[in-house]
Simulated assay, not measured.
Amino acid sequence: MTYLARQRCKLLALIGVFAAPLLAAWVMVELRIGIPDSKTAHGQLEPDHPVFEEWPVSSVTLNGEDWMLVFDCSIDCSQQADRWWRLHRALGREAPRVSRLRIGGDAGEALPGEQRAQWTRTPEWHSEGQVWVLDPEGKPVLSYSSDVSTEDVLDDIQLLLETNPEPPGGADR
């Protein structure tokens, strides 16, 4: 093989090294090979829900820095409250970044770290046992039906906390 032929082979190999990933990506997109069909969020996105300040609930003080897990406690309240308290504990070191709010239910003791409120009127977007995740500004991000798996809600909250890091100085609280 001559010197010129070796140089051409090197050039073609170099072009192949850079072109092969592009070709492979194009084939994957066009033929839908190796692209996951799963979704990230388990809940329903709720862009049309009003912000929390507009919800018809008795007065609740919002922190403004925490994500909030809000749950309707109109069915099987003690079990629901315990379920979401356990989810909150499962967050580990991220637990201080999430607050819990129980709306409705009996007038029993609130669990540690939980706020209580009552509906002043029932909104049209409400359903019994529903759960919402609100961002620090009070906007509903996700909602879940009463039969949602606790693990699914935990996965979504952990993903939200991971993709929205704590603001500077937030670790001091």
Rank of each mutant, 00 (worst) to 15 (best):
E53T: 15
E53I: 10
E53Y: 02
E54I: 00
W55A: 04
P56K: 08
V57W: 06
V57A: 04
S58I: 01
S58C: 06
S58A: 08
S59W: 03
S59R: 10
V60C: 03
T61E: 15
L62E: 07
L62D: 01
G64Y: 02
G64I: 06
E65G: 13
D66H: 14
M68F: 01
F71W: 12
F71Y: 15
D72Q: 05
S74W: 13
S74G: 15
D76P: 00
C77H: 06
S78M: 12
A81Y: 00
R83Y: 07
R83T: 13
R86K: 14
L87V: 07
L87K: 01
L87W: 03
H88L: 04
A90L: 02
L91N: 06
R93S: 06
E94N: 09
R97C: 08
S99F: 01
L101C: 07
L101Q: 05
R102W: 09
I103K: 03
I103H: 03
I103P: 06
G104F: 11
G104C: 05
D106F: 13
D106V: 08
E109G: 02
L111Q: 11
L111Y: 11
L111W: 08
Q115R: 12
Q115L: 11
Q115A: 13
R116M: 12
W119I: 09
W119Y: 09
W119V: 08
W119E: 09
W119K: 05
T120H: 02
T120W: 02
R121K: 14
R121M: 14
P123G: 09
W125R: 02
W125C: 07
H126Q: 12
E128W: 04
E128I: 07
V131D: 10
V131L: 11
W132Y: 15
W132R: 11
W132Q: 03
V133G: 07
V133F: 13
D135F: 02
P136Y: 06
P136G: 03
G138Y: 00
P140W: 03
V141S: 09
V141C: 04
L142V: 07
S143C: 09
Y144K: 06
S146L: 12
D147N: 12
D147M: 09
V148C: 04
V148W: 06
V148D: 01
